[in-house]
Nucleic acid binder design. Structure first.
Length: 646
RNA sequence: GCCAGUGUAGCUCAGUUGGCCAGAGCAGCUGAUUUGUAAUCAGCUGGUCGGGGGUUCGAAUCCCUCCACUGGCUCCA
């Protein structure tokens, strides 16, 4: 007999050799029908695999993340079985479950055959057919020699490659129906659990993620234990599309793009420009209070600048090609830092000048690959909320902390809650190649940065090998509404450029000393930040950011004079407002204004004129009743001044 | 850049076994209407069917090519 401990602490005894699935059956048949896998002493395995020793057992169902990923991974095998039946001779690479987007994919070599959308529909049908057969996923332990033989006979170089890193005792095959795959598992008990199938996408994917390698075909899909859940998922996708910044940006007249201008180059329309100006106002106020000085620098510079900065040798591909003039090469700037360094260096600095903080809404141009461009999130001309802080080693921690606090302050204003701070560190093996060869400085500053994060008290993850070439950094990661991850803001340490630009200040001992630099962009770029805000607010901007803050809706043009008086009072209070002077019915005016997501609507009819009031309607909230005009203006003005979120 | 898909009016879309001057709704304009909390009515304007080339008696529709966009891959200082 063995003792099984359940998550709630209950202990039951079973005969050795019982499977988690049988354990579930002993509790209830209903539960057993839902079991996808089992967590045994914290390790996920097949629910059908027998237990021979005492164990902590958690039965995994669809409501568990591990249950879902087992389900999806098994679905990948089911898809592979269907693919093999329709495309004999196909070779498979790997087929994992994915979190984002939910589902799975399988990478495969179709031997030059092309696969079409129609094929996806055929594969779905085939998968559904196979699923109905309740094919059991059979696990088999196999020796390396046998496994090697199996795949050499098959001529499958991909699985042979995977086997290279595996040894006897850790190799298992899984077979369901006619499909056998090298796989560590675990899998769901049988294919019958998979009730709803949607193959979503065909894509190319480089083998092992290296663009020098052959490109494999990747099929994406998602499956569910019921049709209802698939329908809900598809509905959710539809809803997400409605708050896609590309759709909202067009509908609300925020930005546009044009073939004659160029890919990835944003034309900010009047509504978008209002938002930009409000963001800049916020940044300028905040930076002034933080002791920053503002500067303005040109969009281009000569080649030598970027050789000094170290950017050109490594990143020439992502810069626009140079313009030649009088035998000199000029580049569009891809970053502002070198320009700021030259300002720092323009006058001798002493320790009394430090920290020296330069801020600019700098315009940068980056030649992003055409396939990478994405609405406002990934563009070729961007405006960074950039600043560089030149400081002494002693001042560094305090300055870095102040920057971090600024991030947190901003995120509070915008109500940004779903983000992750990512501490990006160097990879010691790549010192001197990808990273400046200063092992001690790396460790020292990484430690300082880590401490600042701990002190700020925000959640963060550490990633080795993601640092900038000149120092560690903190990135703020956010997700677009369709689930793509982006760096919204960044805060970087730089101990390379001060040296390459020979920057120095005179310290108290009258010796020249090299400063440290902090690069920071808490609001990222106009482009990405506004793209993010559009999705974050679903286009319903808080009043302080709304391009049009108040729309006055007279019920008929008899009340137009009064409407103009109210308009003038609002304008006097610096509130962005307009009168709807069309000869439309009030219902139509309200509808149009609601769709335009204008926060305040002031309805004016005979009653309001007589009482010297306006009827207030808040976007999305409906009629709020009549109000005294001056009082209301005072409230709106305060709401704007405080940059209130709701 | 690579794999796959898409491109018809300002917007959303219809129009493919190749065949009358390419359609609708919304938006816009004009007129009527003077309206009480999410669409008043009528008329009109608007398209080199992404660009270029080809096949054909004939192309939005078939083929080639370029461009842009979309979903991935790679990349993201």
């Amino acid at each position: 007999m063995i003792k099984i401990t359940f998550p709630d602490g209950a202990i039951r005894e079973y005969a050795a050799g019982i499977s988690p699935l049988d354990v579930a059956k002993s509790i209830s048949e209903g539960l057993a029908r839902k079991i996808l896998a089992a967590s045994v002493n914290g390790k996920v395995q097949d629910a059908t695999r027998p237990l021979y020793e005492d164990a902590n057992l958690k039965l995994l169902t669809w409501t568990d993340d591990e249950g879902k990923s087992t389900f999806w991974h098994s679905s990948a095998h089911l898809m592979a079985e269907a693919v093999e039946s329709i495309f004999p001779g196909v070779k498979f690479w790997v087929g994992p479950a994915t979190q984002n987007p939910p589902g799975f994919y399988y990478d495969m070599d179709l031997g030059g055959k092309q696969i079409t959308e129609d094929d996806l529909r055929k594969l779905e049908t085939k998968m559904a057919e196979l699923a109905k057969k309740n094919e059991v996923y059979v696990r088999k332990e196999i020796s390396k020699a046998d496994a090697l033989k199996y795949f050499s006979d098959k001529g499958d170089e991909y699985k042979l490659d995977l086997l290279q890193n595996l040894n006897d005792g850790e190799i298992t095959f899984y077979t369901q129906g006619d499909f056998t795959d090298l796989c560590r598992g675990p899998h769901i008990p049988n294919t019958g659990f998979i009730k709803a199938i949607k193959l979503t996408n065909i894509a190319g994917a480089y083998w092992k993620g290296d663009e020098k390698n052959k490109q494999l075909t990747r099929l994406y899909g998602v499956t569910f234990p019921s049709q209802k859940e698939l329908d809900e998922y598809l509905l959710m996708l539809e809803e997400a599309k409605k708050r896609d910044h590309r759709k909202l940006g067009k509908e609300l007249g925020i930005y546009t793009m044009n073939d004659d201008i160029g890919a990835g180059l944003i034309l900010w329309m009047p509504n978008g420009t209002v938002i930009i100006e409000e963001l800049e106002k916020l940044a300028k106020e905040t930076e002034l209070a933080g002791g920053y000085k503002r500067v303005v620098t040109p969009h281009i510079a000569k080649e030598n600048l970027y050789i000094t900065s170290g950017h050109l040798p490594y990143y020439a591909d992502s810069m626009f090609p140079p313009m030649e003039m009088d035998g000199e090469k000029y580049y569009l700037k891809a970053m502002n830092c070198p320009h700021h360094h030259k300002i720092f260096d323009a006058e001798p600095k002493s320790y009394r000048d430090m920290p020296y903080r330069l801020a600019e809404y700098g315009t940068c141009y980056r030649y992003e690959q055409s396939g990478e461009l994405f609405g406002l999130m990934r563009v070729r001309c961007l405006h960074m909320n950039d600043a560089h802080i030149y400081c002494t080693k002693e001042q560094f921690a305090k300055e870095f902390k102040a920057v971090n606090d600024m991030y947190v302050k901003y995120f509070k204003i915008f109500g940004i809650e779903k983000y992750v701070m990512r501490l990006s560190l160097h990879d010691p093996e790549k010192l001197g190649q990808k990273y400046v060869n200063e092992p001690e400085l790396w460790l020292e500053t990484e430690e300082l940065v880590r401490n600042v994060l701990i002190e700020t008290g925000v959640p963060f993850v550490e990633v080795k090998g993601e640092g900038a070439f000149y120092g560690p950094k903190i990135d703020v990661q956010i997700w677009s509404t369709i689930g793509r991850e982006f760096t919204l803001a960044t805060n970087q340490v730089d101990f390379a450029q001060p040296r390459s630009f020979k920057l120095s200040f005179t310290n108290k001992e009258n010796e020249p000393e090299i400063p440290l630099i902090i690069h920071r962009a808490p609001l990222g770029t106009h482009e990405r930040f506004i793209g993010f805000l559009l999705e974050h607010y679903a286009g319903k901007f808080p009043v302080w950011l709304a391009p049009l803050q108040v729309k006055i809706l007279p019920i008929s043009d008899k009340f137009m004079d009064y409407a103009q008086t109210v308009l003038q009072s609002l304008k006097n209070a610096d509130i962005r407002c307009e009168v709807d002077d069309r000869s439309e019915k009030i219902g139509k005016k309200i509808r149009d204004t609601e769709i335009a997501k204008v926060p305040y609507m002031l309805v004016i009819g005979e009653k309001e004129v007589n009482e010297g009031k306006v009827s207030v309607r808040r976007q999305g909230k409906g009629d709020l009743g009549a109000r005294n005009v001056d009082e209301l203006i005072g409230e709106i003005a305060l709401e704007i001044k405080e940059r209130r979120s709701l």
